[in-house]
């Protein structure tokens, strides 16, 4: 089995007092094991709903979501699903349970009923992975946003998940905290082989992915490598997204007659491409 998460014809409605909103309709998506997927989309595009369907927090009204082949509707195997697909949310304050860092990281393994020695060993190794080991006895509210978010990630990896879904984990962080969190996520994917689904509206974070999805009104409107998706700047802008300044520069220069391969994101690639075009 190659896919860790499979959406088969999923429909999900969100009902409020006034009306029913269809968030997703006949939605299909596969996430490959070990992959790094970035999902882009403006607010209200259905990103958060999509995330919460991935570990069974929300259940589809029709169709099915399979995690390692297990249907998320299966109540018996609910803990298996949730420990396979971990979830990190936007607001770092609202996902930390305990008032001591290591006790918070231990929360997941404790719920799984693991023996004490194993919890200790998992907590220590999770904290080391996110570079927060020296803070293990600190109180979370004394930490910075980026540090809190890394504690939240440690709390998830202590459950030894195969996949982590992160729903705008850096939206409330400053640039330093943002970079620390992204570096941690990247490391988890590359060194620990954990599948990553990163939902974000920071376009530059897409460069770390091997697959970028654009979500608009509950539909996938673009699906490809970062280079493929970023080679259509007009399309991204129409989807309510931004493009990094580097991509915009290349695009504008191309309009003025310079020749480039499209979809360049990083500063180095951009400078190299421009240098090559100017020297031609």
């Amino acid at each position: 089995m190659n896919n860790i998460i499979e959406f088969n014809n999923v429909t999900y409605n969100y009902s409020s007092e006034d009306a029913d909103y269809i968030v997703l309709k006949d939605f299909n998506l596969n996430i490959k094991k070990g992959s790094f997927t970035v999902i882009l989309g403006h607010n209200g595009s259905g990103k958060s709903t999509l995330a919460k369907l991935m570990n069974g927090l929300y259940k589809p009204q029709s169709g099915s979501v399979l995690v390692n082949g297990i249907n998320t509707l299966d109540e018996e195997l609910d803990l298996k699903v949730k420990s396979t697909v971990g979830m990190v949310f936007q607001n770092p304050d609202n996902q930390i349970v305990a008032s001591v860092v290591e006790e918070d990281v231990a929360f997941g393994p404790e719920n799984l009923g693991l023996p004490q020695e194993e919890i200790r060993q998992r907590v220590d190794s999770a904290l080391k992975t996110v570079n927060m080991y020296e803070h293990k006895n600190d109180m979370p509210h004394k930490l910075s946003g980026g540090q809190k978010q890394r504690i939240a990630i440690a709390g998830v990896i202590a459950m030894l998940p195969e996949c982590i879904v992160l729903d705008e984990p850096t939206a409330m962080l400053d640039p330093k905290g943002r970079q620390d969190v992204i570096d941690t996520i990247y490391k988890l994917n590359k060194e620990h082989g954990i599948t990553i689904v990163l939902i974000t509206h920071f376009m530059e974070q897409a460069k770390y992915a091997d697959r970028v999805l654009v979500l608009n009104n509950g539909e996938i409107t673009a699906d490809g490598t970062p280079i493929e998706v970023f080679s259509k700047p007009e399309f991204l802008k129409n989807s309510g997204l931004d493009i990094p300044q580097t991509t915009e520069l290349i695009f504008e220069l191309a309009k003025k007659g310079l020749n480039f391969k499209n979809g360049i994101i990083s500063v180095d690639d951009t400078a190299n491409a421009i240098a090559a075009a100017l020297r031609k």
């Binding site: 530059e204 300044q245 580097t246 520069l249 500063v267 180095d268 951009t270 400078a271 190299n272 240098a275």
Partner: peptide, 20 residues
Amino acid sequence: VGLDVPLITNVLLKLNELGF
């Protein structure tokens, strides 16, 4: 002081490193 110039300025600085 832990800050940086805009992304676009970085591209031009890089170009200058490349001899422009």
